[in-house]
């Protein structure tokens, strides 16, 4: 039972401080989760902490490899609305 950080991680340091299990470490090019230490925050928090603060969509995945923050979930813009919103922003 562990989450995983994939290579879209930008090494922003946000997740490392909020992990209750001390499971996150800085590797050469990105941050990683030690699968042996990760508890998926069970017993500590209702939500997985690293995935609640990570600013990059599709970077932290569950044990099945499914992103916890899918595309559009952090910007709040569903992919199909992207063009419309972009035009609106550009008209400002």
């Amino acid at each position: 039972m562990s989450l995983e950080i994939v290579d879209s991680c930008v090494s922003c340091w946000a997740c490392i401080d909020v992990c209750p299990s001390d499971a996150i470490f800085k590797a050469d090019t990105q941050f990683k989760i030690d699968a042996k230490k990760c508890t998926e925050c069970e017993g500590d928090y209702a939500n997985t902490q690293c995935a609640s603060i990570c600013p990059i969509e599709e970077t932290i995945c569950d044990s099945e490899g499914v992103p916890i923050n899918p595309l559009g979930s952090l910007t709040g813009i569903p992919p199909e609305k992207m063009n419309e919103i972009m035009l609106e922003i550009q008209s400002r």
């Binding site: 922003c12 340091w13 990059i56």
Partner: peptide, 16 residues
């Protein structure tokens, strides 16, 4: 102080 607790639309957190 690398970590941040909010996202601002004018900030890119990749800063290297």
């Amino acid at each position: 102080a690398p970590a941040c607790n909010i996202q601002c639309h004018y900030c890119n957190r990749k800063y290297d």
